[in-house]
């Protein structure tokens, strides 16, 4: 009975996760066939060759954490406002309105941002008030704006949930005992909201690390991520073994950072488990 319940999912895990990932691992030690694709071999050349794509790794490893941090910083006051200041009647509606954009065409929304950040968009409006020579599109700034725009809808809900559970009497007690609002925030509100911040950051970080559309549209080929390198290696230059090595490196980096991050979050004060989803 139990076996029958687990069998369908087990089949998917085996044929769409375990075997394909194993194939990627095997391919990463192979050679590029003359016409593209894979030729059997055992070599570390693909891994030794990774520095050839160092730009993609550096961009991803700086802009993904930065974008996550920026999104968290902007999401926090939004979540706080919704959980504490808004009347319960409107809370859920306002929260759904924050989440909704994430579930609508990502391609078109980022395409609209190309217009907004392009020479005829925000830079031309800024020129009207005397700020000239602002370039946004195809810069790291555009990618960061896009990251906040794209992932705010995922960051706000978990922070909101942890703030909503927060016992308001703790804040009153803190104030009664003479704490300033600032120290109440850093000593009570923030530590108690940390699990939510951790969950949201994890989600956003995972999605940013593997993103393709955001850097493709707003980085315009100048600010590219590992995802862009992968599309190039698999669909254009058809160097599968090297692409496989890049994939393995991406997954390893993610596992290590997520593990380190979880350790860091869990080691801080309360031992509440930061649930992933």
């Amino acid at each position: 009975m139990t076996a029958a319940l687990l069998a369908p999912a087990g089949v998917f895990f085996l044929f769409l996760l375990i075997i394909p990932l194993a194939v990627v691992l095997v391919f990463s030690f192979g050679e590029r066939a003359p016409a593209g694709g894979y030729a059997a071999a055992f070599t570390f050349d693909n891994y030794l060759n990774l520095p050839a794509r160092s730009k993609a790794f550096i961009n991803t490893l700086t802009l993904a954490p930065l974008g996550t941090l920026l999104t968290a910083i902007i999401a926090f006051p939004v979540a706080y406002f919704l959980a504490v200041k808004v009347s319960p009647r409107w809370r859920v509606t306002m929260l759904v309105l924050i989440m909704a954009p994430f579930w609508t065409s990502q391609l078109l929304r980022y395409y609209a941002w190309i217009m907004l950040l392009g020479a005829k968009g925000i830079p031309s409006w800024l020129a009207l008030i005397g700020i000239t020579d602002v370039r946004l599109i195809n810069t790291p700034w555009a990618v960061l704006i896009g990251a906040v725009y794209g992932f705010l809808p995922l960051m706000v809900p978990p922070i909101y949930v942890s703030l909503e559970k927060l016992d308001k009497r703790l804040l009153e007690a803190s104030a009664d005992l003479g704490a300033t609002p600032v120290s109440t925030f850093f000593q009570i509100t923030l530590p108690l909201a940390l699990p939510g911040v951790a969950t949201g950051s994890m989600l956003v970080f995972i999605l940013l690390m593997g993103d393709y559309i955001l850097p493709q549209y707003l980085g315009g080929g100048k600010v590219f991520f590992i995802g862009n390198a992968l599309v190039d290696l698999f669909l254009q230059s058809r160097n599968w073994p090297f692409g496989a090595a890049v994939s393995v490196a991406l997954v390893l980096i993610m596992l290590v950072t997520i593990y380190a991050y979880m350790r860091f979050v869990l080691s801080r004060g309360d031992r509440r488990r930061a649930a992933l989803v």
Binding site: I206, G227, L250
Partner: peptide, 8 residues
């Protein structure tokens, strides 16, 4: 859930 969609 954790492996990026692009790698899948």
């Amino acid at each position: 859930i954790m492996v990026p969609g692009i790698v899948i």
